[in-house]
Design a protein around this nucleic acid. Structure first.
Length: 841
RNA sequence: GGGCAUGUGGUGAAAUUGGUAUACACGCAAGAUUUAGGAUCUUGUGCCUCACGGCGUGCGGGUUCGAGUCCCGCCUUGCCCACCA
């Protein structure tokens, strides 16, 4: 052993040791104390930076901690390997996606190892390999057979630059979330998963997820967007020219049916399906058609912007409010979305948008809700009244509380058969087809005789062909491979053609956590027994950016697979931890951004590991701040973590002989002298605090600062060969436990020093320290002495002192006498173990 | 516009139920050791004040013996949702 901390020698050595001895391989048959720790698998984009590292370092620390607490921990890793970036790279460089992806995987695997992050690589999954996507395809067929995968022509979000369709979720503010081009609408045949069938369950079961952050659940609730309301049919007034409509009504969705007596017109969306038919041949037709065309030109961004002035035109048609028989005009307005039914009843008096619209086009306004004071007068209003109140001018509902009126009116509408209570969800079906090469082919065959037929199980996987050009044309590149496209019908054997679209990569990542348990099983997608034993995942760790999409889809898949009878649970992740992103000031503009090449603020771990070692990078990454919050990377502060590890190393080196020979301390602290008794107490307080930090909110940063404090306390105690056996024993105990406590964070140095202290089993087999309760005892307690809430002194009292004794000591104290001079004592508050406050006045 | 966060030294940040604000670290300053050091060790470091003392957790109120923490009203920054009827 040497004085200098030789991180570059010991780190590769211990990494090899962990691998060679299979210390992170998990026996799936041993399910006692099971702990499935899952980190979101990465997309193999090239190289990991220290921002990515936070995820794996947190996970690895949790895995090591749980192992030391005696859990049988499963920690697998894999690759979310299909996706657009690899294909885009292929278009640019000509390197096939598979080749670049597999190369990246090798690089990233080495990086994970260099960080000291260990996984059970026997269970590795790679979503772009046929052994994996065979089963993604198989699952697609299960969904298809249950009617949960369907094809329909629909207006889809189309990114002209990526030349592909995007899911709603991939459109951000009207822009493509990958390339920021403006997304346009295009009608195409697309595959969907019917996630809307599961909307209610996905919403309800959020309540079961006690181990999830509240904000993630809120985001999912908002995304699912349940709104309860009523659908009311307004009969169309027949056309004056005698032309018959194919329908006799316009149904509208409302959450405020209580305001219906104030409805003065109705508005439909420009995309309302029957709109063109309703106006055909009317004098207003040309104007309405122009309005529809103009509205379609608005980008999503424009239409959703607040600033946009609401526009509309009268259609020339009228509808009848079924509650009061009033004829109201039917308008088309660009502020109405194809949500619900695409038609809304307009109540300008009680809706701000309708108010603005009615004022602009001089439409009538009618009050139907009165405030509780009865002071609302239409002529005096300069805004819609959207608060609660009582119904007014509403026939038999007059005087009713408006919230109660909702239920009453729905009941009334149902009885009269012109409406019903309904529930609307914002959640849309999941568009999963992509006109792209680098994805799992959708296992469907089109036969002229049999129609749309799924590929037979024994024909799976439908392999991606290798003889294709990747250039995007708006059609799937697979269409240009005859060998791929031409096949025979699984049912009748006639010549047939394959589906040429591939699946969204979110499909691949919706079930990978199930596949880890039978990664190499070529006979089935999911090993039911293993899955039931090991799932739900005990702890899922990943970025907040996946709060909605990935986590919602994975929940959906789990429920579907549950309904297929393949697993017994229907929520995949019992606990979720979302770590914050690591940001750094950009070299370009000095602002804080998440790490990305374009901002010039990427910190590569390789150089840091070379200069300081993986343990330092790990320790700093965990010490940087609360892990759930965003953090700013500071190159200079890394030094501090390095110094701390060097200090531990030096302390062991300095006292190596003493540490190897010292005994075990007797737990009886009454036999100790003050210095070692204080250290022994501090040691046990630290164990308690650190264990609490790790079991609770994963507050690694405070756990580490506690170890630092403990180390400071250790350095207070002077020890040498001449010291008493008791001092030596406590000193050794403290150093040894520092090594154990820091091992989840800095495992390499911990292993090395653990061995240095004479232990033969690795540190992972060391027990996590238990708190010696007796060591926490104090004879005397120091309390703050306050006068009127201000600290004026300190009071040392025996720990056995009663409240009365403490009060007596307090009022006799010099500081109290000084500060309460001439004033009467009103009250004395004693907070045991903390302070005494004397209130005077 | 709605919802959820957030605001504490020069910096990252800490503070079980309301109970001694600024632990721990970075940075900075001074010193020791050293041929030298970006190594190591010691000391200091919220603001005002010579001092006594006063003031201090975004701003303004409130409750309390006592408020970073609770309540009310604002403001900042960030995230999510958003013409959802």
């Amino acid at each position: 052993m040497n004085e200098k901390y030789p991180f570059s020698e010991i780190e590769p050595k211990w990494q090899k040791h962990w691998t060679d001895n299979g210390l992170f391989k998990t026996d799936l048959s041993a399910t006692a104390q099971k702990y499935y720790c899952l980190m979101m698998f990465p997309y193999p984009s090239g190289k990991l930076h220290v921002g990515h590292g936070r995820n794996y370092i947190i996970g690895d620390a949790v895995v090591r901690y749980k192992k030391m607490r005696g859990h049988n921990v499963l920690s697998p890793m894999g690759w979310d390997a299909f996706g657009l970036p690899a294909e885009n790279a292929a278009i640019k460089t000509g390197t096939p996606p598979r080749e670049s992806t597999l190369k990246n995987i090798v690089v990233m695997k080495e990086q994970l190892a260099a960080w000291g992050c260990c996984y059970d690589w026997d269970k590795e999954v790679t979503s772009c390999e046929p052994e994996y996507y065979k089963w993604t395809q198989w699952l697609f067929i299960q969904l298809f057979n249950r009617g949960l995968a369907y094809k329909k022509k629909s207006n889809v979000n189309w990114c002209p630059d990526c030349a592909t369709v995007l899911a709603n979720e991939q459109v951000v503010d009207g822009l493509c979330d990958r390339c920021d081009s403006t997304v346009i609408q295009k009608a195409l045949e697309q595959w969907f998963f019917k996630i809307t069938d599961y909307a209610q369950r996905l919403l309800d079961d959020l309540d079961k997820l006690e181990g999830w952050p509240e904000r993630v659940k809120t985001m999912q609730r908002n995304w699912i967007g349940r709104s309860e309301g009523a659908e009311i049919d307004f009969k169309l007034v027949p056309r004056a020219d005698g032309v018959k409509d194919s329908t006799d009504k316009v149904a509208c969705f409302t959450t405020r049916v209580d305001t219906i007596y104030g409805c003065t017109y109705m508005t439909v969306a420009p995309e309302y399906p029957q709109l063109k038919e309703l106006i055909a041949g009317l004098p207003q037709e040309a104007e309405v058609l122009k309005f529809i065309t103009d509205s379609a030109k608005l980008t999503n961004l424009d239409r959703e912007s607040d600033a946009l002035e609401k526009k509309g035109v009268f259609t020339g048609r009228y509808v009848i409010n079924p509650f009061n028989g009033t004829q109201v005009p039917l308008w088309v307005g660009d502020y109405v979305l194809m949500y619900g039914t695409g038609a809304v009843m307009a109540v300008p008096a009680h809706d701000t948008r309708d108010w603005a619209f009615a004022k602009k086009y001089n439409l009538p306004i009618k009050l139907s809700i009165q405030n509780l004071e009865g002071s609302l007068v239409l002529s005096a209003m300069d805004n819609a009244y959207t608060e609660d109140g009582v119904c007014c001018d509403s026939a038999e509902f007059i005087g009713m509380d408006n919230r109660e009126a909702i239920a009453a009116m729905v009941k009334y509408a149902e009885a009269k058969k012109f409406g019903k209570g309904t529930i609307n969800f914002r959640l849309r079906d999941w568009l999963i087809s992509r006109q792209r090469y680098w994805g799992a082919p959708i296992p469907i065959i089109y036969c002229d005789r049999c129609g749309t037929v799924p590929v037979n199980d024994d024909e799976l996987p439908v392999l991606l062909p290798t003889d294709v050009e990747f250039k995007p044309t708006g059609e799937s590149p697979l269409k240009r491979s005859d060998a791929f496209m031409n096949c025979s019908c699984p049912k009748c054997g006639d010549p047939a053609r394959r589906e040429s679209d591939t699946m969204d990569t979110f499909v691949d990542s919706s079930w990978y956590f199930l596949r880890y348990l039978s990664a190499k099983d070529s006979t089935q997608a999911i090993d039911t027994a293993a899955a039931n034993n090991w799932l739900p995942v005990d702890q899922y760790i990943g970025g907040i950016e996946h709060a909605i999409l990935h986590l919602l889809y994975a929940r959906f898949f789990t429920k579907v697979i549950h309904d297929l009878g393949l697993i017994s649970f229907d929520e995949p992740f019992a606990k979720l931890f979302t770590q914050g992103m690591i940001c750094k000031k950009s070299d370009i503009d000095g602002k804080l951004y998440k790490m990305s090449k374009s901002k010039g603020n990427v910190v590569s771990p390789n150089e840091l590991i070379e200069n300081y070692g993986a343990d330092t990078v790990r320790l700093y990454t965990l010490f940087i701040g609360p892990p759930e919050k965003e953090a700013e990377w500071n190159d200079a502060a890394v030094e501090g973590s390095f110094r701390f590890l060097g200090r531990i190393w030096r302390r062991v080196w300095q006292h190596r002989d003493l540490l190897r020979t010292a005994g075990i301390p007797a737990c009886d602290i009454t036999a100790m002298e003050k210095p070692e008794r204080d250290l022994y107490r501090k040691l046990n307080e630290s164990v308690k605090k650190i264990t609490h930090d790790l079991d609770g909110a994963f507050h690694f940063h405070t756990a580490i600062s506690t170890i630092m404090e403990l180390m400071n306390a250790i350095d207070e105690v002077k020890v040498d060969a001449a010291s008493s056996e008791q001092v030596k024993a406590v000193y050794r105990d403290a150093i040894e436990k520092v090594i154990v406590l820091i091992s989840p964070f800095a495992p390499h140095i911990a292993e090395e020093l653990w061995k240095e202290l004479g232990h033969t089993g690795g540190i992972l087999s060391a027990q996590w320290p238990e708190v010696v309760e007796a060591a926490l005892h104090r004879d005397e307690i120091q309390m703050a002495l306050q006068v009127n809430g201000k600290v004026r002194g300190q009071l040392v009292v025996p720990s056995t002192a009663t409240k009365e004794e403490i009060e007596a000591l307090a009022i006799a104290d010099e500081a109290v006498l000084k500060w309460s001079e001439g004033k009467a004592i009103k009250k004395i508050i004693v907070v045991p173990g903390r302070l005494v406050n004397v209130a005077v006045g």
